[in-house]
């Protein structure tokens, strides 16, 4: 199992159940390893809606801390628009094609 979780390209209501199960399975496995923080990547996300962002909000309410390490532009735009801009923390975020903030 890889060290970071790649969110699917379609992170929306149509895949919400599946995405939630995949994320929860991964998080549970990671917690057993007692890592410092979880790394989530939204590099491949093309389609995202409120239910997709809600999955990560739910992750924020688990004991384990997590950080976004990569974000596609559609994902970053969705975070900023809905008020999850705090997730786009340059401290952890590797800048990606599209928007980069030197």
């Amino acid at each position: 199992m890889s060290d970071r979780f790649e969110l699917p390209s379609e992170l929306n209501i149509y895949s919400a159940l599946e995405s939630r199960d995949a994320l929860l399975t991964w998080v549970t496995a990671q917690m057993a390893k007692a890592k410092g923080y979880l790394e989530i990547s939204a590099r491949d996300v093309v389609e995202v809606d409120g239910s997709g962002l809600q999955l990560l909000a739910a992750l924020s309410n688990m004991e384990q801390t997590w950080h976004l390490v990569e974000a596609s532009e559609p994902f970053a735009e969705a975070c900023r628009t809905l008020g999850f801009g705090d997730w786009l923390d340059p401290l952890y975020l590797k800048s990606h094609s599209g928007e980069s903030n030197p």
Binding site: I13, A16, L17, S19, R20, L23, L24, V27, G50, S51, L53, Q54, L55, A57, A58, L59, S60, N61, M62, R80, T81, L82, G83, F84, G85
Partner: peptide
Amino acid sequence: SVRCGSETVPPLVNLNPESCYL
């Protein structure tokens, strides 16, 4: 400014992902 509250969303383990808590 805009802020979405994650404190209103249940933890992932209790989340019904098709219900909206936002």
